[in-house]
Design a binder for these strands. Structure first.
Lengths: 199, 199, 199, 199
DNA sequence: ACCTAACCGAGACGGTACGTCAGGTCTTTCC
DNA sequence: GGAAAGACCTGACGTACCGTCTCGGTTAGGT
């Protein structure tokens, strides 16, 4: 027997949904993640708290939705100029720049905190926010592999992690600067591991 | 002119300090980080809340101290057998295993959440918990560089990050398994980037 | 000029009306007055909330209607045997018994709460629920006055209050038992005040 | 095993207690009982809500305490001039006047609503607020009984109720005016029932 | 036999207050 | 004067209902 109906999604107010997600990202920019409260989101959105709790289990889920919603627009495509190094520069540089920007970085931190604290949310974050970019890079590397610019025996998942991993690590623990020079060096170092030639 | 004295550290109760740190790690193991409260720590430690607030600014600082305290004992030394690959296996495998262990991993997540949410704590975490291991690996790589096992032009900081970054990235976003095989492959891939030979 | 129409009573669903009033009395019996909610009435009656708010201004009005509806059947007539004492016993005893019954008393309490809290409802309660009985007793006393069983100078309103007042007072503040013996004594005492003879 | 300690009354802040009770009576005067909220009391008193809930189970109990506290000062003594009629005038007239005053009456209504809705509070109200006056009148009637101004066979409890009952009844259901003339007539009528003489 | 106006069930909505929880501060009492 | 204990003010939590509103789906008369 299946019942347990819950609210009826067809009756959901799109107006309220957008107001809530909008208010969430706004407030996330203005205050830190820890300072962000459901009450503030509701107030800013001009919405009753119940309307939030009716559709989301809690603050983390709202933020995830808000960020996923905001990210949809910018789901950048991976360029393919034929030169894998150049293309990686093109994708890594702006990502590094984004992490270096205190404003944009704040949302990433919020996201990461959620990810660390809640396994279910972690899956959502991984699949809805990270995966698109991850797969885009992976596809580009596969093409490079076919073009003999990347060794055939390289595991492409590990290859992508070799690029993004150090970047997030440096960002997360604030180990060093996130400059354009760093982005270039990172790509060069990774390609040294992946490339067919020693150059 | 107020002397801004604050409490007198010489009169501090070592008994209370240890009870608090002990209670913190215990509770961190029993419940998640978000569920951990200062009140619970005080109650478990048989201590007044004020005694915590007298000596630490907040929950994060207590946990950091607690973990740093616990970590002191295990501050592993980096081996040096002359074979850099073998030595990296020896350090990366147990680290990966630790992240794979749900019990031990929980404390790392707690740490990371603090790191993400509080810049001051991030520095503490970086310097007191990560740095020792980081520097140990860096020293070992420097030796390898001198032994011509690592290219001379490699930036050693980036080199260390190339090893630890992907590992934390995979752990943080739960991207893939953290197996011993993964540890080996990671080291191999990193050494492909760093090594003087193509092998 | 707006016609200020409001809902059209001719189209009102008698089915819903009865279901609502029925649900109200049921719930009043099951839970206290304060715990009674419009939502619960609507749910129990299988009715939309709007159907309640369309026809009644609020919970109090619904309850009043429900109780008035239920009371219609029992609007007892005052007997007239010629013996005023005997007739007063006949009306006071069951009224006391009703107040003594926890089940029936609950509705009276609900009624009284409304009365106390809302002046407009108080008038309704007074006129629709109390007045019939009040006037019946008053008429009977007038007859007794004509029969020289009650002093001619007695104000009949005050006379009725002299009987019902102490009864409700005792009930309301739970001052003493509401037994048949009490009912008899009350009538005797009141008649001592009203009667032409000392007996 | 008995524990379940609850808060320690010796540590209770007298300052907060008085502020809360004061705010409660103030607000009761400004708004109706139904409009009175715990949050408003806390805000007005400059007190945390928790401090209210720590010491009282809910709004009703606070109000009861507040009114009992306020009533303590005015716990009028019953005069004894030797003339029972005159003395009853002296006590009934101001009581009627108080019920006639919309301002003072509001608190009585609040009290009564609590009384009707909560049995435990009813006992408190009866014992702490009503009883003193009730007993004072009863004592005075006992003296009158000894002075042969009241019949020896009269039950004094019922006698007191014969006076207060009609008064509250008229007030509660807004049956008629609560004038000084009414007060006099009520006393006269009651004494007709109680007196040794027919006059 | 259709039309159309309005009631109906349902339930989402913006709100208010609830009673609870934890934060960080302040006070009391003891050692 | 530090420490245990715990009351205090504060403010967010998640829930329960409020009274309003909007949505299809019945019901009526009225034509």
């Amino acid at each position: 027997m299946r019942s347990q109906s819950g609210p009826d999604p067809t009756r959901r107010s799109e107006r309220s949904r957008r107001a809530i997600l909008g208010a969430a990202v706004e407030l996330l920019g203005e205050t830190g993640y820890n300072e962000l409260t459901v009450e503030a989101i509701a107030a800013r959105a001009g919405v009753g708290k119940q309307t939030i709790y009716r559709w989301w289990p809690g603050k983390g889920a709202v933020i995830l939705d808000a960020l996923a919603d905001a990210a949809v627009d910018v789901d950048a495509q991976m360029p393919d100029t034929g030169d894998i190094r150049k293309d990686l520069y093109a994708i890594v540089r702006p990502t590094v720049a984004e992490l270096a920007d205190p404003r944009l970085s704040a949302t990433s931190r919020a996201l990461s905190i959620e990810t660390l604290g809640d396994e279910a949310l972690a899956e959502q974050v991984r699949d809805r926010l990270l995966r698109p970019q991850f797969d885009a890079v992976k596809d580009r590397l596969r093409a490079a592999q076919r073009a003999n610019q990347v060794r055939a025996d390289v595991d492409l998942d590990q290859a992508v992690e070799l690029i993004f991993g150090p970047m997030y690590y440096r960002w997360m623990f604030r180990i060093g600067p996130l400059s354009e020079e760093y982005a270039n060096d990172l790509v060069d170092l990774a390609l040294a591991a992946l490339g067919t030639d020693t150059a």
